[in-house]
Amino acid sequence: MKRNEFLDLLINPFTRIAGWQALMSGITVFALTIYIGFNGNAYFDGIIDMHFVENAVLKYSALSGIISLITLAVVMSIACTLVTKNFRFIDILGTMTLAKAPFLILAVVSLFVKMPALEQILQNPLILFTSVSFIVMLVTSIPVIIWTIILMYNGLKVSAGIKGIQLNVVFVTTLIVAEAISKTFIFILLKP
């Protein structure tokens, strides 16, 4: 495989894989991410974010991940119906699920992160920057999040077939709205 083809596959695999195929691959990676993240006390409970907790609960970890993913796909599909009729929900859901694959890297890194206790952080937030593993996590998370956003953008572009300013507006609006809605759903449905 040529270098350009490999790069294309990394940032836009959706020209080759979408729909059910992307959904199945995405679910496999997503399940691994959730399980490994749970072992590292990390939740993937947002559209493009993760959080550390003291004692992770697998049920919360899985359900919050699923809620955020479905919310993203539904909000994105609703936004797409405003600009085109020519798309399938399964393509949006499949590409968005697979677009979250880079989070597997963060899940693996989370296994090695030792977060300072919450009380210590509240007393002195700068203590976070004395933790080497936290800094490694921070440095790793930036390219992973950028990669995920690029994948989501390309996933929407391929799935809905929209371009230019329409694509940018739908993408940015969807991310913001879906983040807000998923947080609300997670709070309402999964509150302890």
Partner: peptide, 13 residues
């Protein structure tokens, strides 16, 4: 063509 369905549909569009 070994391409995804939406890619082919976009080419047609």
């Amino acid at each position: 063509l070994k391409l995804s369905y939406p890619t082919v549909r976009n080419m047609l569009n």
